[in-house]
Write a protein that binds this DNA or RNA. Structure first.
Lengths: 232, 232
DNA sequence: AAGACATTTCGGTTGGTACCGAACCGTCCC
DNA sequence: GGGACGGTTCGGTACCAACCGAAATGTCTT
């Protein structure tokens, strides 16, 4: 990655570059043009920023036809950006549609490869209540029964990735200021919820949509009741 | 803290400022002049950097006579700097005394309020072996017996701080690439080892000195045997 | 009261870099 | 093949911020 602390931070110390990375933290790849818009900058300028980010090891590129798709170079980069973002006050919203977009993000969104937002935080609490996790003053940890708990519900924790990642990682939710679940469990949960149709990605954003079937699934599988209406 | 992700990173994206923060990560306060030398920059320039860091919420100042002592604004800042540093290759050493300084740091040093280095990593492993912690693929977690384990050895985990901090936090050691213990347990351990004279701060650095009494204490209390001679 | 010392403030120079538009290179589509 | 489109490269401008030395401020010592 970056040669030293300063060069790494310098990369994220430029508003346009930071915005681009934040836009990518959802996990999908975005084209250079989309990222230029995300950074609020001309395509030519964006191109320079992007090559810096690639050279710095934060992003990777794949060329596809006349498009070039950029994505975060790995899960650690997503962690890094989320971590930095978590120590930061969200910017004030301007405008109505912007406001609704924010509301959707606040409720449920992807955070690289796992779920974040109100739903994710509540889910983490439900898992603690069900003794599938423990909460130690804001840090989530696995229990001896964690793996069987998910196996009973047809969720394979090994399937997601190599075994080098921790089973449970606690990720501070920057909207809720409470933890949600990352690590292998977090990734497996997101995969499973997407696969079973409980939630669906909203195209073009990190926000995800929790439908009625998803609500009842969460309730019966994890004892999680989501109160109130959800923004569509 | 910083208004947004970019301004926060920008603060650490300047080599002189980054060096100053790294110098402070040991936890002690340093004077403006010392920090100027640490950053390799004229006092006047350092002063500007320091006021930026204070304005950004990373550092705090206390005036004492004709000196002004700067320190990290809080434990989270130390975490932040360590976290960034952990994703970074250490710079190559130049010169002999520099080399010895590095060796000392590699063996045992403070990392804000807990212990890091070879000794800390080995200690973490010993604690896992003693079932006082568990290691989940590189992430350390507490066990049901954690608190009694330390209580039996006269180490009070509540004494260190408010209860908002997690009991155990896993901190990736940037020299060893393996985890050591942070969080309340990490802080209590460092306090206890310093208080009992098992280790002593080396003045002017983050490195700490493990003496003979300390070795035997670690051996009998935690079953940790440190092999070989230690750099003095 | 005067001198030494630590630090900050001020003025001025400089280099880096973020930025854009225009030109250039590919790919896709008619 | 020719046009439209996405992306990068190039040239040039402008601004910011890092830097230093000198002067100013304040504290401690004698």
């Amino acid at each position: 990655m970056g040669a030293d602390l300063a060069s790494l931070s310098r990369l994220l110390g430029e508003p346009a570059r930071a915005e681009m990375c934040v836009a990518l933290v959802g996990g999908q790849a975005l084209s250079a043009g989309e990222l230029a818009r995300a950074g609020g900058v001309a395509p030519s300028t964006a191109s320079e920023h992007l090559s810096l980010l690639v050279a710095g090891g934060l992003l990777s590129v794949v060329t596809q036809g006349r498009h070039r798709y950029y994505r975060l170079a790995g899960p650690e980069v997503g962690d890094l950006v989320e971590y930095l973002a978590s120590r930061t006050a969200p910017l004030p919203a301007r405008g109505l549609s912007e406001d609704r977009r924010r509301a959707q993000l606040r409720v449920a969104r992807t955070c690289y490869d796992h779920l974040a937002g109100v739903v994710a935080v509540s889910l983490a609490e439900a898992l603690v209540a069900a003794a599938a996790l423990t909460d130690d003053d804001g840090a989530l940890h696995p229990t001896p029964t964690t793996e069987t708990f998910f196996a009973e519900r047809g969720i394979d924790l090994g399937a997601t990735n190599g075994n080098k990642r921790p089973l449970v990682r606690s990720c501070l939710d920057w909207t809720e200021r409470r933890p949600h679940v990352a690590g292998r469990v977090g990734a497996a949960l997101l995969q499973h919820l997407l696969g079973s149709g409980a939630i669906a990605r909203r195209p073009g954003t990190r926000a995800v949509q929790l439908n009625r079937a998803g609500k009842s699934y969460l309730s019966e599988a994890f004892g999680l009741v989501i109160a109130g209406e959800l923004p569509s």
